[in-house]
Design a binder for these strands. Structure first.
Length: 291
DNA sequence: TATCCGTGGAG
DNA sequence: TCTCCAAGGAT
């Protein structure tokens, strides 16, 4: 295995010179701001999160402020970030923080993990980045960097394995784990990218196992591509966009016009309602959830 | 564990 | 154009 010290110094120095100036990394960022950013960044590029996050934090600077609003307002201001269930869960998360934690974002990993919308990665990220805790932060970037640098694989496994977790924990420095975590993430996001890694700019190219092995391409089953056109997801997106942009309840006809296939449309609408992303009123009009 | 859950930019 | 995939989570 690679000596941790061969990785630590070069990556930390690289980060010092190349870190992006992101608002949730600013010295005045609150734990709530960090938490909001982490939820928004799930499966979503930084560039698209930036404006939504700024608006969100201006509107709801604290968990309590968000918890005081109907969940539909969270969904509305989520805009076109994607995966709007995250907005619902972030709202539920704000309510739980308000009701069960005195309005303060918990600093403890296990407590964070129990909150809606927060899984293993996000709990580690918030505990680490907002509170300086020592946790292995295993996102897609970190997993890819370690897969390449240490295991000589182009891509990490489909799902996070115990082997990866042990490796990440073994590489955790005694001090400054939070900075280390964000530095590796940043390296994966900017240099050790999925598609066309910029090895010429990489601070650990000299010790990277994958590069030293001649950058062998990924072997094994092709990773599942996500089709989108014509799916229920696309249909749900269309329907929800109508509700988001409306100021009050909309008649069903307003939903019918955005998707031709009636069977699929009904299924998608039922799904939105079941997920709590939409409500039906007795007069058969539809709106974002008020409760 | 495999599948579902949005959206849009890059190559 | 079309494919890939981006700071995952819940079931």
């Amino acid at each position: 295995m690679v000596e941790p010290n061969l990785l630590h110094a070069p990556i930390l120095e690289w980060y010092a010179d190349n870190a992006r100036d992101l608002p949730w990394r600013a010295s005045d960022a609150t734990p709530w701001g960090v938490l909001v950013s982490e939820i928004m960044l799930q499966q979503t590029p930084v560039i698209r999160v930036l404006p939504i996050w700024a608006d969100w934090m201006r509107r709801w600077p604290t968990p309590k402020a968000l918890a005081a609003e109907p969940p539909g307002e969270a969904v509305r201001h989520w805009g076109r970030l994607g995966y709007p269930r995250r907005a619902l869960r972030l709202h539920a998360c704000a309510q739980a923080i308000t009701d069960d934690h005195g309005g303060e974002v918990p600093d403890d990993h296990a407590t964070l993990l129990a909150l809606p919308g927060i899984g293993e990665y996000t709990a580690a990220a918030v505990a680490s980045f907002a509170f300086g805790g020592r946790h292995a932060v295993l996102d897609t970037n970190v997993r890819r960097v370690f897969a390449r640098a240490v295991r000589a694989e182009e891509y990490p496994p489909t799902s996070t394995s115990a082997v990866e977790r042990r490796l990440a924990e073994a590489l955790l420095p005694a001090l400054g784990a939070a900075r280390w975590g964000v530095a590796v993430m940043e390296l994966g996001a900017l240099v050790c990218t999925a598609r066309a890694p910029r090895c010429a700019d990489c601070p650990i190219s000299g010790v990277c196992a994958w590069r030293l092995a001649g950058k062998p391409p990924h072997t094994g089953p092709a990773r599942k591509g996500q089709t989108y056109a014509g799916t229920d997801r696309q249909c749900r997106g269309r329907l929800l966009a109508v509700l988001r942009e409306a100021h009050g309840p909309v008649p069903k006809a307003a939903l019918d016009v955005v998707w031709d296939d009636a069977v699929q449309r009904e299924r998608a609408l039922d799904g939105l309602i079941a997920d709590g992303l939409a409500e039906v009123l007795p007069d058969d009009t539809y709106r974002l959830p008020q409760s």
